[in-house]
Amino acid sequence: MLNTSEKITALPDRLGAATLNGLAYVGGLARLAGESAYVAFIGPFRGQRVRLGRTIQQAMQVGVGAIPIVSLITFFVGLIMALQSAYELRRLGAIQFVADAVAISIIRELGPLITAIIVIGRSGSAFAAEIGTMKVTEEVDALEIMGVRPVSFLVAPKFLAMLVMVPCLTLWADFMGVLGGCLFGVTGASFTVMSYLRATRDALVVNDILTGLVKSALFAVVITAVGCREGFSTGAGAEEVGRSATTAVVRSIFLVIAVDLLFTALFYLTNRG
């Protein structure tokens, strides 16, 4: 058992080890993303197979399958944002700004973020579970034995599908969020549908939508890399698959928020002057 002074001197060691582990993890993610990007974007020019069928299949699962739940949740969130901001705005006698408040919060932040979190729950965990199960049943080994690279066969199609579908879902989420706000605007404030949408349009600049899309593409990379990496690091046994899926969800959410913070700060700093 360590005494107190030993504990204190051991702290920098542990901190250093944890930092190195964290960096190594992020490095591993970057390598996985890099390899997938190579397979997806450079491989085809070098005569490697493009797995279009698998990519489309993934895109259907990741993107099209998520539309109902993304629509419902972002519609509610738009409505919530409208209610919350109306509470303050009404006291200031500025209820007509409810459209601006909803538009900016949804399109700059909540649309991309909530989409990412839904995609983590639906697809990030599924990636980890799918690859984890294949690892446990030796299917990943079987691929390798056939001379098929698991990254090219399993990760690259997911990566490509996510890179296309998450920004698309985000756009759709933005739209549904605004519609949610519109419901309040029409019923609770003196807007018509058209005037609400016009107010939304006037509140936004193109950059608002673009920064949201850039972020959502980054989220897509993070979610795919974490999900697949957790899948590949699954140990032996069925319970390990569940653990991998859980870890994938927790780490993806954390990393998505961290990336969000980083880029929001970056956009803020670059647009200030």
């Binding site: 049943t137 030796e138 079987a142 098929v148």
Partner: peptide
């Protein structure tokens, strides 16, 4: 290689499993 549990790809039919190495190589 024939693995202990078979290691057939669960998302593909038996035929697609056998065809995979041929399609790849």
């Amino acid at each position: 290689v024939s693995f202990q549990g078979g290691a057939l790809f669960g998302s593909m039919t038996v035929g697609e499993n056998v065809a995979l190495p041929l399609l790849e190589h």
